[in-house]
Design a protein around this nucleic acid. Structure first.
Length: 277
DNA sequence: AAGGATACCTGAATGC
DNA sequence: TGCATTCAGGTATCCT
C-alpha cells in the first residue's frame, strides 16, 4: 500500500505524540509479522526503553530507542502504524500493540500480514538488506540529474521495473512510478539505457514533482492506506493515469490503458507516452 | 545482470 | 446466491 509519500505522512503525523515516550509493554496478537529477533527477545529489547526519534528511509520506518537499538518497520502492502488513544478501540487487524507510558498506544495492524517488524543494533543494520542497499531519496541533495544518468547507464531493465527497484531510487512504488512516467512522457516499456538526456531531465523533475505532491496531499488512499492518526490522503483525486483505465487522459483525452510490466499492473496514456517517436 | 515465476497472506471485486 | 478466479500502494528468493 504505502509508498514514500504515505510513509512520510505516517512518520510526520505521529512523531510529536510518541517521541520521548517509554514503551511500557508490548502485546503480540499476530506474532508472525515479527521477523527478528524471536518474539521473546524482541519484547525484551524494547520494553522499558524510550523512543528517541522516528524517521523514514525509503519505505522503512525507523524508531531510534534510547538504548541505542533500532526498531525497523516495513508496511509492505497493507501495513498500518496507528497512534491510538487510550479509550479508542484498536484496529480490527492489529498484530502488535506498543503501550506507551501516557496510556496511549502505537498499533501495528496489517490485513495481509506481509509487513515486517525487526529490532537491530545500530552496528547490525546490514542485517536488513533491503534497508542497507537503498538508492538515493527523491527530493534529496544526492538525487541529481547526474545521479539518475549514472544509474540508468547500462541498465537493460524496462524503465518501469528500473524505477520500482529500491536499489536505484528509494521510495517509489507502483502508483508514483506510473505517474512520473506519464508526466515525463516516457512509455513504461522503454529500456532504461535508451533514455536521452532530455528524457532523463524530464524524468528527474517528474519524480520529484509527483513525490512532493503526494506528500503534500497526505498520500494516496485507495483502500487500506491511513496515516498514523487514521486519516485518509487525497492524492488519488489528482492522479493522471494510475487506476484510470478506460478514462480520458487529462491532457489529450485519449483513453488510458492498462497493461502488465514486470508483473505489475501499469497504467499509461498510449498517446502521450509513445514507444516509438 | 535481468527477468520471470513463486511465495508470503487476506479480502474485495469480478466472472460465470 | 454461490463458488471460482483475479487482483491489490511490496519485496525476497529461486530459477533460467
Amino acid at each position: 500500500m504505502p509508498e514514500m509519500p504515505e510513509v512520510e505522512n505516517i512518520v510526520r503525523g505521529i512523531r510529536k505524540y510518541i517521541v520521548n515516550q517509554k514503551i511500557v509493554d508490548i502485546e503480540i496478537i499476530k506474532g508472525d509479522v515479527i521477523k527478528y529477533p524471536e518474539i521473546k527477545k524482541y519484547k525484551e529489547l524494547l520494553i522499558g526503553n524510550s523512543i528517541k526519534a522516528i524517521d523514514r528511509r525509503g519505505k522503512y520506518i525507523i524508531l531510534k530507542m534510547d538504548n541505542g537499538i533500532l526498531s525497523v518497520i516495513h508496511l509492505r502492502m497493507t501495513g498500518k502504524l496507528l497512534y491510538t488513544l487510550q479509550n479508542q478501540p484498536i484496529d480490527k487487524y492489529s498484530c502488535v500493540v506498543f503501550y506507551l507510558e501516557d496510556g496511549n498506544k502505537l498499533v501495528y495492524a496489517d490485513v495481509r500480514r506481509l509487513g515486517t517488524l525487526e529490532v537491530v543494533n545500530t552496528d547490525e543494520l546490514s542485517r536488513i538488506k533491503g534497508l542497507y542497499t537503498l538508492g538515493a531519496e527523491p527530493l534529496s541533495k544526492e538525487f541529481t540529474i547526474e545521479y539518475l544518468q549514472n544509474i540508468l547507464k547500462g541498465s537493460k531493465s524496462k524503465i518501469k521495473s528500473f524505477l520500482l527497484n529500491q536499489k536505484n531510487i528509494a521510495g517509489l512504488g507502483n502508483i508514483y512510478v506510473d505517474e512520473a512516467l506519464f508526466l515525463s512522457k516516457i512509455n513504461p516499456l522503454r529500456i532504461a539505457t535508451s533514455l536521452n538526456d532530455m528524457e532523463i531531465k524530464r524524468l528527474h523533475e517528474a519524480i520529484n514533482k509527483v513525490i512532493s505532491a503526494g506528500i503534500e496531499d497526505g498520500g494516496t488512499t485507495f483502500r487500506d492506506y491511513r496515516n498514523g492518526l487514521g486519516g485518509k490522503g487525497s492524492h488519488q483525486e489528482h492522479l493522471y493515469v494510475y487506476n484510470r483505465k478506460g478514462q480520458p487522459c487529462r491532457l489529450c483525452q485519449t483513453v488510458i490503458e492498462k497493461t502488465t510490466v514486470g508483473g505489475r499492473g501499469t497504467y499509461y496514456c498510449p498517446s502521450c507516452q509513445r514507444l516509438d517517436s
